[in-house]
Design a protein around this nucleic acid. Structure first.
Lengths: 131, 131
DNA sequence: AGCATTCTTGACGTTAACGTAAATGTAACG
DNA sequence: CGTTACATTTACGTTAACGTCAAGAATGCT
C-alpha cells in the first residue's frame, strides 16, 4: 500500500483547497500532519478531519468553533471535566444546527412560493410582450 | 397611527442591530430609508427587508447574495430579461439551500451519535472514578 | 440660552480566513 | 551539475462586515 499518507498536493487535489489553506489549518491546530524532514505528510486522520472542517464551514461555523467540535469527534482519553465541557459545547452546536435547519426549511418553502410567483409573471410577460 | 415609519433607534432595538449596521446596509443598497431632512426614516418595507437580510445571514449567505435575493422578493415591474436573470439566481439559491439542509440533516444525525457516545463515556468515567 | 441627547457623515481600525509574493530548500531528471 | 518542479517559512496584502472615534447638525429639556 501507499503507506497511507498523503502529500500536500494530493490533499489539495482531493479536497479542492490550496496549500496555503492546509498550512493555515495546521497553524490553527485543526490538522496535525507529520513530517518527513520539512515536508508535511497528512494521515488518514487528517483527511477525516479536513472533511469535517469543510462541512462545518458550509454550515457557517467559524474555524474556532469547528476546532472545538473536532475535539468531540477525536476525544481520546481526556479528563472528565474536559470531556464534559466539550460535550456541552457540542450539545449547544446541535441545538443551533437543528434550529438552523428548521429555519432553513421555512426559508426554502417561502422561496419556492416566490419562485412559483416569478414563474407565473414570466409566462405573462412572454405571452403579452409589449404593454 | 404612528405614521408607519421608524427611527433608526427603533429599528435597532427591534432587530438588535447597531445604527452602523443599518447605515452600512443602506450604503450597500440593501435598505432604502426615506429622509426627514438628515434623518433616516425606515418604512415597513425596510423592516421586512431587514428581517430577510438577517435570516439570510444565518444561512451563511453574503450580503451581496442576499441583495440579489431581495430583488426577487421585491421585483416590481422589471424587464423580462432582468426578471428572468433574477429568477435564475433564485433557483440556484434554492438548490443550494436544499443541498445545505440535506447536509445539515446528515450532520445532525452524526453529531447526535457522537453525543450519545460521549454521554456513555461520561457515565463510565463517573462510575469508575480513578483508573 | 445652555446643555444633553441623538442623529449625521467621514474616516480609520479590526477580525477571520485566507491570497500572494519573496527567499530558500530539496528531490529528481537528463 | 544545472534547472525544473514543488515544498517550506516569513511576511505583508485583501475582502467582508461591521466597530469605533471624531466633528458637526438638529432636537428637546429646563
Amino acid at each position: 500500500m501507499t503507506e497511507n499518507v498523503y502529500t500536500i498536493r494530493e490533499m489539495c487535489d482531493e479536497f479542492d483547497v490550496t496549500p496555503r489553506t492546509l498550512r493555515f489549518y495546521e497553524a490553527k491546530e485543526l490538522l496535525f500532519p507529520q513530517r518527513d524532514g520539512q515536508k508535511r505528510l497528512f494521515t488518514k486522520r487528517d483527511r477525516a478531519r479536513l472533511g469535517l472542517i469543510l462541512r462545518g464551514k458550509r454550515f457557517g461555523f467559524s474555524l474556532e468553533e469547528i476546532r472545538q467540535l473536532l475535539d468531540l469527534y477525536y476525544l481520546g482519553d481526556q479528563q472528565e471535566t474536559q470531556l464534559a465541557k466539550t460535550y456541552e459545547v457540542a450539545q449547544k452546536h446541535l441545538r443551533e444546527m437543528i434550529e438552523q435547519r428548521d429555519e432553513l426549511n421555512d426559508a426554502i418553502d417561502e422561496l419556492k412560493e416566490q419562485l412559483a410567483w416569478g414563474e407565473k409573471r414570466l409566462k405573462e410577460l412572454r405571452n403579452a410582450p409589449a404593454a
